[in-house]
């Protein structure tokens, strides 16, 4: 084997190795992230109204540096809220080591019945780090409106009392407090986890 041929072979080997490395490292990064919902590109700051948790007043800005997952629900909620909170708990679990960089907050759409204590007991049943917040009717109405959420009292059974119909979207707020993503109720835990992961960077 001549020296030139050896050089060519080595050159080819290096080139091949380069292609493999590029394939494994670069290509997955080039593929765009597919979001599970509508991404808001402009800089819309998430409403920063003060609400109340069992541990005292809470604002979105308290969680600066974390990705905040905002969901509107209530403790008497028969189906949609438990299903969503379960799913969010699963998403957080999927993030494994980065789970502490995420904060899930449920805002009550039933301020008349939900006390901060009831909310705490309810949301921590799904995940110990979840936070439940409420406020007076006017404050909750304002916050919900600004998150694109609407709710109204509906008739329930005698056992449950009234129920509340409400928008069931899940909203992601990035580390800087910008409202970034609106996810529909149907999204999977894996999709939500991958979207949170995207905003964790």
């Amino acid at each position: 084997m001549t020296v030139t041929r050896k050089r060519i072979l080595i050159g080819l080997g290096v080139a091949l190795l380069g292609v493999v490395v590029a394939w494994l490292l670069v290509l997955p990064r080039l593929r765009p992230h597919v979001f599970g919902g509508a991404v808001i590109q402009s800089n819309q700051k998430a409403p920063n109204t003060e609400l109340v948790s069992a541990d005292g007043p809470v604002r979105i800005s308290d969680f600066a540096g974390k990705v905040v997952v905002v969901y509107f629900g209530y403790t008497f909620c028969p189906d949609v809220c438990p299903a969503t909170l379960d799913k969010l708990a699963e998403s957080v679990a999927l993030l494994e080591g980065r789970a502490d960089e995420v904060q899930v907050v449920m805002v009550s759409v039933d301020p008349a019945r939900d006390t901060p204590e009831m909310l705490e007991e309810y949301v921590t049943y799904f995940h110990p780090d979840f936070i439940g917040v409420t406020g007076d009717e006017a404050t909750v109405n304002r916050v919900a409106t600004l998150y694109g959420v609407v709710y109204r009292q509906a008739e329930g059974t005698e056992a449950t009392g009234y129920t509340i119909d409400h928008t069931s979207t899940v909203i992601l707020v990035d580390r800087e407090g910008y409202l970034k993503l609106v996810l529909p109720f149907e999204g999977s835990a894996e999709q939500i986890a991958s979207d949170i992961d995207y905003f964790l960077g």
Binding site: I40, T145, G148
Partner: peptide, 21 residues
Amino acid sequence: RIRIAPGYLLVNQDAETITSE
């Protein structure tokens, strides 16, 4: 995609509620 549109519950000309949903 500029902002999230507000959620609302209003009453229309037929006295029916109309919501963002």
